[in-house]
């Protein structure tokens, strides 16, 4: 069984997590990435984006859904289960790219700004899942 049964379920859980990330210390990294980062999901099919905001805005980025209306710099395409495992820190991105479990488009070097900080972000997803009543998913999905 996939973790996310429907696009709405994925958008609720991962979208909600991304909304929470807007307020964490590492959110400023979106400025170093320098553009919109889009996550394209398969099984279930949907898409979510981190859209940079002016530095005067309340948070460094907003979370947007659906077909983008603004230019996208980086795209990461993956299925819902892979995304779930990635944010739990159980996906080796290098290996996932090589196996095309994650398909990246755009300048990967920009994403490198985020990668050194992922170890700080992964626990936030586990905590978030606990907060929204899905602690049972923390051990779920093949690691």
């Amino acid at each position: 069984m996939p973790i996310f049964d429907t696009p709405e379920a994925l958008e609720t859980i991962l979208g909600g997590f991304f909304e929470r990330l807007r307020f964490v210390e590492q959110a400023y990294l979106i400025y170093q990435i320098g553009g919109t980062m889009e996550f394209v999901f398969r099984k279930p099919d949907t898409r979510i984006r981190w859209v940079p905001q002016p530095k005067t805005a309340a948070t460094p980025f907003t979370v947007a859904y659906g077909v983008p209306t603004e230019p996208v710099l980086l795209t990461f395409e993956q299925d819902g289960d892979t995304a779930h495992r990635f944010w739990l820190g159980r996906v080796n991105l290098q290996q996932a790219l090589a196996r095309q479990q994650v398909v990246a488009r755009g300048p990967l070097s920009r994403a490198m700004k985020l990668i050194p900080h992922l170890d700080e972000i992964y626990p936030l997803y586990a905590h978030y899942l606990e907060d929204v009543g899905h602690a049972e998913w923390i051990g779920g999905a093949r690691s």
């Binding site: 300048p107 990967l108 070097s109 920009r110 490198m112 990668i115 050194p116």
Partner: peptide
């Protein structure tokens, strides 16, 4: 240098 081999900077 070009970022095609993205190693940390």
């Amino acid at each position: 240098v070009t970022g095609h081999l993205p190693l940390p900077t």
